[in-house]
């Protein structure tokens, strides 16, 4: 698998990262070398091996259904670039 300039442009758009056209080619090269490195793993025979999602041999911890948080309106809004009363305000979203 290898990425071309258009793939990189698309990935950048999806991640909302602005890149100049001149950066596309070098980025494609970099990403391709990462992919190539990861693809080496494909050489290992994994027949009968369960996919591993975590190195920790444990069950996911769960919380009781209790209200222990919230009511920190000023804290959560503290970094908002713009606000109106206790709402976040963002440039108008049309759809």
């Amino acid at each position: 698998m290898s990425l071309d300039r258009d793939d990189v442009r698309k990935i950048a758009f999806l991640a909302r990262i602005k890149i100049e056209d001149a950066e596309l080619e070098p980025l494609a090269d970099e990403l391709n070398s990462i992919i190539g490195w990861v693809e080496q793993l494909g050489e290992v025979n994994t027949d009968g091996v369960q996919p591993m999602t975590s190195v920790a041999e444990m069950l996911t911890p769960q919380r009781p259904d209790q209200v222990t948080d919230g009511n920190v309106t000023q804290k959560v809004l503290a970094n908002a670039p713009d606000r109106v009363k206790d709402f976040y305000a963002v440039p108008k979203v049309l759809d």
Binding site: V67, D69, G70, V72, T73, V76, D86, F87
Partner: peptide
């Protein structure tokens, strides 16, 4: 998260740092 789910609360009162 441990924030409450009640309907109709004042804006952004039922929000934790996780949310």
């Amino acid at each position: 998260s441990g924030s409450p789910t009640d309907f109709g609360a004042e804006p952004n009162t039922q929000v934790s740092l996780v949310d």
